[in-house]
Simulated assay, not measured.
Amino acid sequence: MQLAHFKVLLAFLLTMMTSLTASAEGGVLESQLRDAAESGNAERIRSLLEQGATLEARDRLGRTALLLATHRNQVEAARVLIEAGTDVNAKDSIDDSPYLYAGARGFNQILRLTLSHGADLKSTNRYGGTALIPAAERGHVDNVRTLIDAGVDVNHLNRLHWTALMEAIVLSDGGPRHVQIVEMLVQAGADVNITDKDGVTPLAHARARGYSAMVKILEDASRGKPAPTGI
Rank of each mutant, 00 (worst) to 15 (best):
A4F: 13
E43C: 09
G52E: 02
L111R: 00
L55S: 08
L55D: 07
E76Q: 11
L48E: 03
R44H: 09
G174K: 11
R177T: 15
A136L: 10
K122C: 06
T86G: 12
I133G: 12
G175K: 12
M166P: 00
F107E: 06
A227W: 06
L49W: 02
T163A: 10
V8R: 15
I169Y: 05
A90Y: 03
N125F: 03
A90R: 05
D59R: 05
L113N: 08
R209H: 11
L147Q: 04
A42E: 09
I194C: 04
T130P: 02
G230Q: 10
L203Y: 08
P226G: 01
L132G: 06
L203C: 11
S116V: 02
G118I: 03
A42G: 05
A164I: 11
S123R: 07
T70P: 01
S19R: 03
V192N: 05
L157V: 09
L3N: 15
L29I: 01
H5D: 15
Y211K: 10
D220I: 06
N108M: 11
E167V: 03
M166I: 07
A213T: 14
E56K: 05
L55V: 09
T229L: 11
P228H: 13
L68T: 00
G189D: 09
H161E: 05
V28N: 15
